[in-house]
Design a protein around this nucleic acid. Structure first.
Lengths: 131, 131
DNA sequence: CCGCATCCTCGAGGATACTG
DNA sequence: CAGTATCCTCGAGGATGCGG
């Protein structure tokens, strides 16, 4: 309340929900990868270094549910399943990449800030250093 | 690997680290609030409905460490501490708001996708419904 | 090959109480 | 007022094993 209107309660809630959706450990990476074209489950698993089957399945299901990704099953033996980004999914990539670019543009600056901050903390801890 | 180059291993790592930094439960809301001008600890705590002292302190420290927020202590009684967004902090708001706008522009669409998906799931569960 | 079920760990973050 | 310290909960997510 007060003069804080740029991000009211409701906006904040919506915003957090979408960041939660998209800001998790794997979603954006998957959306990003699927921009290149359809991929199979195992391909995604290999490309997304370190993801567990459990999480890959789960994350893809979420994205599918939200209409960001499609899942196509081919009745073959052995089974083949392809995932692809939807149009909606593609529109998300732009804004999110903007954040990514901000990240890469300012990372050095942030690292320097961190070092300065940590150094200042160490100095502060100088006096009461003995135990 | 392969044809996935838009978001390589390193980029993905950087990107996740920044999303982790900024995509947590409170950071963006605080940055957003501090756009309106400096605020005191208790003001922020009141405005940020539901945050604990512990998390408010912690989040503000992180933001300060990253150079996104400044912390100014006034040697008064009772003590007064003011937090404000830095220039760097302000530049983050744009990109992140772009994601927020995407969220609000597409939320209905997503809700519809979810409903459709859930309905389809229920239908699939129709046959083996008994127990 | 695709993916579900189960178990288990670990850390984010809330509640509470206390200080300068 | 502006935190710090401690304890505790709870859910994200990894590991493993099985099934179509």
């Amino acid at each position: 309340m007060e003069r804080f209107c740029a991000l009211d309660e409701e906006q904040a809630e919506l915003f957090r929900s979408i960041l939660g959706r998209v800001g998790d450990k794997w979603s954006m990476m998957l959306i990003g990868m699927l921009q290149q074209g359809p991929y199979r489950f195992t391909e995604l698993k290999r490309m997304t270094r370190g993801i567990s089957s459990r999480m890959l399945t789960f994350t893809l299901r979420q994205l599918e549910r939200d209409g960001l990704v499609t899942r196509t099953v081919y009745a073959e033996i052995p089974p083949r399943v392809e995932y692809a980004a939807t149009e909606l999914g593609s529109t998300l990539v732009g804004p999110v990449m903007a954040v990514a670019e901000w990240a890469s543009q300012h990372q050095r600056e942030i690292v320097r800030f961190r070092e300065a901050y940590d150094a200042a903390q160490d100095d502060a801890g100088d006096t009461p250093r003995v135990r």
